[in-house]
Structure formats: C-alpha cells, structure tokens
C-alpha cells in the first residue's frame, strides 16, 4: 500500500470532507478494494471519524472491504434481465466459478457480484466481465467467456 498514492487521491479532491465518497471510489478503482490503511489515512486527512467511513464503505455497493479477484464478473439481475432468465445465468456462473454473489474464490481469480441494472435492458440477460458487456448471453456460452480469463 502506497500512502503517497492515497494522499494524491485525497489531493485531487482538495482534501474536502464532502468528497469522501468520491475519494473512496477512486481508491476502490485503484486497488479494487478498500485497504484498511487507506481508510485510516483518509479518516486522518479529512478529519472524519472511522465510524462514518465504515458505514459508507459498507453502505454503498461499489465498495469492497476485502480484496477482489483479478476478474470481476457482474451478472445483471435488473427486472428486464430477470424476466429473460438472469437467474439461470447466475446459477451457471456459480457452477463454473464455485462462488456465489459477493464472494471471491480462494485463488483470487474471480469475484462474482449481482448488479441491479447495467442499463442494457434491451440485451438481457447481460453479464459483464471486467467491464466488457456480454448481451443476450445463453447459459451455454458462459463457460467459454469465463475460460478466456487467465
């Protein structure tokens, strides 16, 4: 963990307390999780109590308090995807990776999350792997997508 990097992120937001969520988002995108030292540093620099940081970090879905896998698999479970079989997509992802939503495997290869809507409703069911959308995905195509992840 590079404290200077955290300081830089805080600087980018002028060290403003109201930018707490924005700062945490930047840290999350840098490290793919919120390391404890980073949170402590943010609390110290912004003069924000740890209880508030902890609440925010656990309140918003974008944050993770544990390290994430190298590949982030998001299965959209928005209504449009739900009525078009998102549950079967999720079941298949679970079968292949061996982990359920919110979990990361022991090798830190995959993290699986459900998301409430990616806004590609016309293409449902949708799965997103490392930021790339796979629309109209059939359960039978999932293995080949995930097998391409190293």
């Amino acid at each position: 963990m590079d404290i200077a990097k955290i300081d830089q992120i805080i600087e980018n937001h002028n060290g403003e307390e109201s930018s707490l969520i924005q700062i945490l988002l930047d840290i999350q995108s840098e490290y793919h999780w919120l390391p404890k030292e980073a949170l402590a540093r943010v609390g110290e620099r912004l003069q924000v109590p740890m209880s508030r940081i902890q609440q925010i970090a656990s309140f918003y879905k974008a944050f993770s308090l544990v390290p994430k896998g190298r590949h982030e698999v998001h299965v959209c479970v928005g209504t449009a995807c739900h009525v078009r079989g998102a549950q079967r997509v999720l079941d298949t992802v679970q079968d292949i990776t061996g982990i359920g939503p919110g979990e990361t495997d022991a090798e830190l290869k995959f993290s699986v999350e459900t998301v409430n809507c990616l806004g590609c409703c016309a293409l449902g069911p949708v799965m997103e792997v490392d930021g790339k959308h796979h629309g109209n995905i059939a359960p039978s195509q999932i293995a080949s997508v995930l097998n391409n992840c190293e």
Partner: peptide
C-alpha cells in the same frame, strides 16, 4: 442516479 432496474432513458 437512474436506479430503477429496467430503465435506461437517463443513461
């Protein structure tokens, strides 16, 4: 903050 699942007009 278009949160309704199944809506993407604002997007």
């Amino acid at each position: 903050d278009e949160g309704d699942p199944g809506a993407f007009m604002d997007r």
